[in-house]
Design a protein around this nucleic acid. Structure first.
Length: 288
DNA sequence: AAACGCATTACGGTAACCCG
DNA sequence: CGGGTTACCGTAATGCGTTT
């Protein structure tokens, strides 16, 4: 099984892109981000584990961080999708019930939201909107993309709540409560020197128990989350202030410059200074 | 299934090294 | 000189087989 690592191109953990699957079936993959795909034209098939769905324009698909999947185009009429990838933490920060549709058990879950259904009608324009906002980067696009993203998740939540035999109760309230607690713990202490040990004692678990719990709920490790969060914060500070890189580094919870540089480079692809140069202040304050 | 504990891997920190 | 990078090593996090 292929495991892909998603790198987010923006200061919020959302990516949107157009994609035309190949006509032959490629190997399936998983990735730690949640994903929604909307077929905008053409025909094809979408494979999830053992399940197969026929695809036409207007069909939407939902996939979580655990399920293998791949799309395939019809050789005569290649299909084209808008895909949106995002981090579960985005939803947790707002309302953890939004995560419920993604906490499904793969065997019984219907990944498919059929074309022509009310949910599909509402979702397609929102998906296009996220895609255009992130592509055009007009003023306020991050907020615009995020709000459409949240709206998408609300529509999906309602869609699956309304459908018979839905699996939304799959994630028990205890798990949700605990995950909420864990997230809140990171939100308030995220820039201190926190580790699994602190989280574990906060939740009344052992460190390895807390690690497993987090991984299962979020799709990636605890430490990965904390690092992502810190880097996102650093990117924001680099682009919107003129503060020295070292100050930003320490304020964001990194304990050494070297570590900050190394992680920033591997996550973002450029050095902090390069990143600042590519996102100058005047982009924000000068519009002409 | 959930919990434990060990083996492996990734990270964090120090210090040294580039390079303009 | 100072921002940026790399090597290395101890430690923390994660993965995984075993146990309950």
């Amino acid at each position: 099984m292929r495991r892909l690592h998603i790198r987010y191109d923006h200061q919020i953990p959302i990516n949107a892109f157009e994609w035309t699957p190949k006509a032959e079936k490629e190997p399936m993959h998983v990735h730690e981000s949640l994903e929604i795909g909307a077929c905008v034209s053409g025909k094809g098939r979408f494979f999830f584990g053992e399940k197969t769905y026929e695809v036409g324009p207007g069909d939407l698909f939902v996939v979580n961080h655990r399920e293998e999947h791949i799309a395939e185009s019809d050789p005569e009429q290649p299909s084209s999708y808008i895909f949106v990838n995002f981090d579960p933490a985005l939803l947790l920060a707002e309302d953890e019930t939004l995560l419920l549709p993604f906490a499904y058990s793969p065997e019984r879950f219907q990944n498919h939201i059929p074309a022509g259904s009310p949910a599909s009608e509402e979702l397609l324009p929102l998906m296009r909107d996220i895609y255009t906002e992130l592509k055009d980067k007009r003023e306020g696009y991050l907020t615009a993309a995020k709000s459409s993203m949240l709206r998408v998740c609300v529509v999906i939540l309602r869609h699956f709540s309304a459908s018979p035999g839905h699996q939304l109760q799959h994630m028990e309230s205890e798990t949700r409560r605990k995950l909420g607690q864990a997230i809140a713990f990171v939100e308030t202490n995220g820039y201190e020197n926190i580790g699994l040990k602190q989280l574990a004692s906060h939740l009344g678990m052992t460190p390895s128990g807390a690690a497993r719990f987090w991984k299962h709920a979020m799709g990636y490790g605890f430490h990965h989350y904390v690092t992502q969060r810190r880097i996102r914060e650093a990117k924001k500070a680099l682009a919107s202030t003129e503060r020295p890189i070292a100050d930003i580094c320490f304020d964001c919870g990194f304990q050494s410059l070297a570590t900050f540089y190394r992680l920033f480079k591997t996550h973002v692809g450029v050095t902090p200074q390069q990143y600042r140069n590519e996102h100058p202040l005047r982009d924000i304050f000068e519009n002409e």
